[in-house]
Amino acid sequence: MPEAASGAHASVTLSDILAASCNADGGWGYQRGKSSRIESTAWVALARTPFSSDALRWLTRIQGADGWLRDDQHAPVNYGFNALALLAMTTAHRVPGGATALARNLLGVKGLRFDPSPVVRQDNALQAWSWVDGTLSWVEPTAYALLALKRARQCGVQMPASLAERLDVGERMLIDRVCTGGGWNYGNAQVFDKQLLPHGPTTAVALLSMRDHRGVAAVRDSLVFLEQHATAERSGLALALATICLRVFDRDARAALDAARRQLAVSLRLEQTVTLAALLVAIDDRPDAVEAFTVGAHDA
């Protein structure tokens, strides 16, 4: 079992690696040497490093006149990663003006509606958020959209009147798709009568987006699931997200954090920007390190 890296040492290492992997255009790719991309750059912005403002500038610079950010001019708009970009924008001292257009765009997104099916017993009428246009609603893009829109509202971004209705649909979709016993798979909770298993990262992200509904049974059950299985998935990203989520819910995150530090050697070898940035957030012990992931009122 690898030794756990100390918090300060790990932070410096992660920060140094991320600083060194910044591209000449000011953004970050999924790995050092790869083209700058929305998801990876948004995570660097969320990690509150000395260079996070550079990441934020890159995000605002690539925002198109139509309000969307695109990894590639030919590529379909990725709604999940645009939500992540909006979340990153809410970390700025002055939220960029483009956040309003981005929030408005996200509110207009709807996953496909389809007929009831005996294959997946769920409410297929709930049109939450899909990854890209013309596809079905999935847990991750829906959770990122909810989290970003709620944070944007908290940060004073001007929101259209449709906000409440869209948040309601997204929340109902997540509650509808919760696995038996709590937690989330990627989209469905069961297929062909088989109950699907919940996963750590999807559960953590969905919980973050539902923190303002802590009294709802699906949220309570899922939080219990995450607490019990926080260290089950050995990857830097899974452990970092579990740590962030448990901290946001004011739960004991020490086991997940220790496991994340022990996993660090593997994460550093793979050198994936999203994982390293998420680990930096998880390891950051400043009280406001996870503020960007917190929706709803703080506990007294």
Binding site: Y30, R37, E39, D71, D72, A75, P76, N78, G80, F81, S130, W131, V132, G134, T135, L136, W138, E140, P141, Y186, G187
Partner: peptide
């Protein structure tokens, strides 16, 4: 690539 087309490569199903 899921980062372009999303998961679980739903555009291919469609």
């Amino acid at each position: 690539p899921g980062s372009i087309y999303g998961w679980p490569k739903n555009v291919l199903h469609m």
